[in-house]
Structures are given as structure tokens and as C-alpha cells.
Design a protein around this nucleic acid. Structure first.
Lengths: 113, 113
DNA sequence: CAGTTGATCAACCAGTTGGTTGATAATTAA
DNA sequence: TTAATTATCAACCAACTGGTTGATCAACTG
């Protein structure tokens, strides 16, 4: 599943854009679970949930292990961290810009008086 | 643009899933810009960029002001914060789970000896 | 006024997505 | 071996997405 970091971000953000997949993430944050366990609460077919899980796996947000006929899913916190990291970089940049603008405005006001 | 927080997350994460829109976000983090300014670096039509900007605006990640015939775009750090907040909640939950599991394993190991 | 600039609207197209049903594989239990 | 369980594959479909071109609108500028 080697991917450029650009494609990682594409697929991971796309994965989080679906409410079913976010609910799966929320469930998995409380511990590993199988496809059947994950599918149970949803009003859609198990196949549809299986597809969602494949999307999450391809995005790197979850990993899967083999246990006989089960394929338990595990949430990967590092993948989540990569996303917050991208967002926070730009959020902090824009907040810094705002502070700089405030400073400039304060300076102008002082010159007036 | 009143939306439920579920729909907010849907559209905001979907917005970030596109590399062009992420590049627009990155540009806007360094300060406001107009559609033409934003479109200039991309090898696609201005109309396509205009659509991307509308997606960003609808998702709440950016806001727009009027300045005569210009429509400058501004990045909204609070909208970004809402996303990191959602992600971090679940990332911290799963990390907590990991630590609990480690503790259980340590306890079992101790009982063996 | 006419012309230019900034931005959007409208219609269209190819590719992707999220869902379905039905068949199939693989492992476990009787 | 047969039957049940877990999960996936395959084909299909409606809806959405990201791009295009061409027309249009609104606001400056000569």
C-alpha cells in the first residue's frame, strides 16, 4: 500500500468524508472488531460495509489481521495524526497571519494619534 | 449555510480530499486572494477553480467578501479546528485503548512470574 | 457610451462512488 | 462429509464529481 503522501491525504480525507466510515472509525477507536460486528448497527448490506472497510484499509486509516475466518480491523492512530498534522500546519499559518494583521492595524492606529 | 455538524464534516472532509483544493487552502493560509490569483498556478480553467472555491465555501472552510468586482477568499481557521477536533477525539481514544492493553499484558506477565 | 476585466452560470461528458443482488471462497462445527 | 459462518467477488445501477466550452452578468475604465 505504498503511496505518495499526496495520495495518502487524498484517500484518507475522502475516507473520512462518509458518515458510515466515520462511524466505523468511532467504533474502532474503542477497540478492534470484525466485519460482521461492524456491519450490525447499519441499515445497509454487509457487502456495502465490507466495501467501506476496504476503503478505510486502502487509505491506511485501519489495518487488518487474520484470525481464522475472521478479519479483525484495527484503527491506526498514526494515520489520523498525519491528517491533523496537515490541517494544523495551515491553521496555525493563517492564525499567525491574523495576529500579524492585528499588529499592523495597531501600529497604524498609534501613528494616527 | 446552516448545516448539521454531520453534514459539515461530510463536506469539509470531502473538500480536503482534492489536491487542488488543498493547494488552495495552503495558498489562502498565507493570506486572502481572489479567484484569478488563486487560479493562476493551475493548469485548469478558471471555471474549474471557481467550482473548487464554491466547494470550499459551501463546506465552511473559506468565506468570501465583496470588493467591487473582486470576491476575495479568506481561510477560516475555526472550520479547520473542528476537523482536527473530530479526528483527535478518536485518535486519543484509540491511543488510550492501546495503553490499557499494555497495562493488561504487563499484569498478566507479572502473574506468570 | 463601448470595451475590458472578474467571476459565474449552463449544458455536457467521462469517471468514480455507494449501494444493490447473487455467486463464491475459506474456515469452523456437526 | 455436510452444513453453517465469515467475508469477498462480480455485475449492475443511479447519483455525484471534476473537468470542458460557450454565454452571461456586473463592475470598472477609456
Amino acid at each position: 500500500m505504498k503511496q505518495g503522501s499526496e495520495e495518502q491525504l487524498n484517500s484518507a480525507f475522502a475516507a473520512l468524508a462518509d458518515p458510515v466510515r466515520r462511524a466505523l472509525i468511532a467504533r474502532l477507536s474503542r477497540g478492534p472488531a470484525t466485519v460482521n460486528e461492524l456491519a450490525e448497527p447499519f441499515p445497509i448490506t454487509k457487502q456495502a460495509v465490507s466495501k467501506h472497510i476496504q476503503v478505510l484499509e486502502q487509505s491506511g486509516l485501519i489495518t487488518r489481521t487474520r484470525e481464522g475466518q475472521r478479519r479483525p480491523c484495527h484503527l491506526d492512530p498514526a494515520a489520523l495524526e498525519a491528517l491533523t498534522s496537515w490541517i494544523d500546519t495551515h491553521r496555525l499559518t493563517v492564525e499567525r497571519q491574523f495576529r500579524r494583521l492585528d499588529t499592523v492595524l495597531d501600529t497604524l492606529k498609534e501613528k494616527e494619534s
